[in-house]
């Protein structure tokens, strides 16, 4: 049990711990971060971990990576209760809750294939953040929270 426990919560040296992710969203968090296992980062994922606050939660630890603001913005859309812990030399140096932005730009693609933002035009996709999703600045299409992960425009 001890080994298993240590494995699950083992500390990272430098990087980011994304905690209090809604259960079931961990793989989408990895998708937002563009992590598919081929780029070499050491990643630990806990799924359906018991949580006082959420009942069950997912947790993602990424070694050697600190999140950009745009990544945090999108994270907030699929994991509104998430907390971001920046770790340097095994210590948490920065701890913050995600804050839903009013807009997100360049990280979600419009699911409407006929939207001008999907054409070859010199613009970046942009969305207004609603209470339960986002809305395309161009065609007005509404993407519900649970559909956002399928429309991420991150590489």
């Amino acid at each position: 049990m001890t080994d298993d426990h240590q494995l699950r919560v083992s500390k990272i040296q430098n990087g980011t711990v994304i905690d209090h992710v809604e259960a079931g969203q961990a793989l989408n968090v990895l998708a937002i971060l563009g992590i598919d296992g081929t780029s070499g980062e050491t990643v630990s994922v806990g799924m359906n971990v018991p949580s006082d606050r959420l009942g069950r939660k997912d947790i993602v630890k990424v070694e050697g990576r600190e999140l950009s603001q745009s990544e945090v913005d999108v994270l907030s859309l699929i994991a509104p209760a998430a907390s971001i812990n920046i770790v340097r030399d095994y210590e948490v140096v920065e701890k913050s809750r995600v804050v839903r932005p009013e807009t997100v730009s360049g990280v979600v693609s419009c699911p409407n294939r006929n939207c001008i933002s999907n054409a070859d035009e010199p613009i970046t996709s942009g969305f207004a953040v609603l209470s339960d999703g986002v809305r395309c600045d161009y065609c007005g299409a509404i993407v519900r929270e649970k559909e956002i992960a399928a429309n991420l425009d991150v590489s």
Partner: peptide
């Protein structure tokens, strides 16, 4: 224009 949002973009 045949694409939704074309006028919004053009106005920019």
């Amino acid at each position: 224009h045949p694409s939704e949002g074309a006028a919004t973009m053009a106005a920019e």
